[in-house]
């Protein structure tokens, strides 16, 4: 089971934002603001843990004029983990928000 760091949480949040959509690495990087050197090890870890699934884009590379990309999305298990993690983070941040709003 991968350790859930802040960066991992960002990736989970990005993928959780729209569960039905497949995203390729660069899209996730743009959404999370993570560098490629940080993002891909996280994606690999999540995939090994079974929280993320991936598949190759089905295109005719010669017709499209580019290589096929690898797309990712959360699995059912990954969705549960992401939901739990994000709820936990929200709960931890709630007192801070309350403090800020009252001040």
């Amino acid at each position: 089971m991968p350790r859930i760091t802040r960066e991992t949480e960002k990736v989970l949040a990005a993928l959780f934002a729209d569960l039905a959509t497949w995203r390729y690495g660069l899209q996730v990087a743009n959404e999370t603001g993570l560098r490629s050197g940080t993002l891909y090890p996280i994606l690999a870890r999540l995939e090994d843990a079974g929280w993320v699934e991936s598949q190759w884009e089905k295109i005719d590379e010669s017709a499209a004029g580019r290589r096929a990309r690898r797309y990712y999305r959360l699995t059912a298990e990954g969705e549960q983990v992401a939901r739990a993690t994000l709820n936990e983070t929200q709960a931890q941040l709630a007192p801070l928000r309350l403090g800020l709003s009252s001040a």
Binding site: L26, A44, R70
Partner: peptide, 17 residues
Amino acid sequence: AKADRWQKEWLAELDAV
């Protein structure tokens, strides 16, 4: 076992950078 997959993936994304 993983080298080919990541090479293809990163080369594809390099075009999109």
